[in-house]
């Protein structure tokens, strides 16, 4: 009988272990192990072929070489602005889906937001290139409408990168916003209105405080996606788009300087962590509340 109960407990543990195995394997083999390896890489310096020593040289390079941290700051700023633009664009969309549209119309609108994501990011970005390049659709249209004398190159500008980034991130902002706006009781809006608030005052005092966890969640996700985006800045911004992920790519692939690339990777991780912490502090949100909204 004793044996039986041990056997049963052992079996329960085994089945729990098996259920968790894929997740643990994923976490261990694909996230933790590579990061540990990269961390080790980033803290060493090659002194001779196949000879390395522990050093902070990789990080030093970043701070000494103005190009690197210039690109770093540029990427951070662009990401913050792109996140904010995504929020401004996504909020009205989420509002319409959550509060204005009813039944079929609401799901239809949501599907319209979702459909672009059925296509891979590469194809979507190439679509933008077809529209915006000098011989593309939009410049031709501008000429036809006599707005410009000859076709202009709309690619390879910061504005174009913003368009691509916002377009790519929109859904990830809309979804948490919808869920937080849907949970807002309509009678709260009516009560504010009844007590003398106008549209803007209601938005500021009732809607935004209620939706704050959703807004923060959406901003965190979009900011991380934008900061770590490689394809969109490269394709739409061209070689001079100065995105930090391009620097990492260059170190790993072009220069074959894995040590430097690893250090850059950790700097980017540090940046996104710092920004998330800062964002949570500024909006007075708790990480747990916010993550439940994503």
């Amino acid at each position: 009988m004793l044996d039986g109960s041990i056997d049963r407990r052992w079996r329960a543990r085994l089945s729990l272990g098996l259920l968790l195995a894929p997740a643990l394997l994923w976490l261990g083999a694909l996230i933790i192990l590579p990061h540990v390896d990269l961390a080790v890489l980033s803290f060493r310096e090659r002194i001779a072929p196949r000879q390395y020593r522990l050093s902070l040289a990789q990080y030093e390079t970043f701070f000494v070489e103005p190009l690197y941290w210039h690109v770093f700051v540029h990427t951070a700023l662009m990401s913050v602005i792109a996140t904010f633009m995504t929020l401004l664009l996504a909020f009205p969309i989420a509002w319409v889906i959550a509060k204005v549209a009813r039944g079929r119309a609401a799901s239809l609108l949501f599907i319209v937001c979702l459909i672009p994501f059925w296509v891979s990011e590469t194809v979507r970005t190439l679509g933008w290139m077809i529209l915006l390049r000098e011989s593309g659709v939009l410049p031709a249209l501008l000429v036809k409408l006599h707005i410009t004398a000859e076709p202009v190159e709309l690619l390879y500008r910061d504005a174009t990168v913003f368009v691509g980034l916002v377009y790519t991130s929109l859904l990830f902002m809309v979804v948490p916003l919808i869920s937080s706006l849907e949970s807002l009781d309509n009678s709260l809006i009516e009560a504010a209105y009844d007590l003398g608030a106008g549209g803007f005052a209601t938005l500021r005092t009732i809607v935004i405080p209620h939706a704050a966890p959703g807004i923060t969640a959406g901003c965190i996700v979009v900011f991380m996606l934008t900061l770590g985006n490689y394809l969109t800045p490269t394709l739409l911004g061209g070689k001079n788009s100065q995105w930090f992920t391009e620097q990492i790519y260059a170190q790993f692939i072009t220069r074959f300087n894995w040590e430097q690339g690893a250090a850059f990777g950790f700097l980017l991780l540090g940046l996104s962590t710092a920004m998330v912490v800062l964002g949570l502090r500024l909006s007075g949100q708790r990480f747990g509340d916010v993550m439940r909204r994503t």
Binding site: D185, S187, L188, E190, A191, A192, Y193, D194, L195, G196, A197, G198, T205, I206, P209, H210
Partner: peptide
């Protein structure tokens, strides 16, 4: 005249107090 400009106030069924 819009609700926010009327000399009328309402106590809602679910009260609608502002939780924030």
């Amino acid at each position: 005249i819009a609700p926010n400009r009327r000399p009328v106030n309402m106590v809602f069924q679910q009260l609608a107090l502002f939780p924030m």
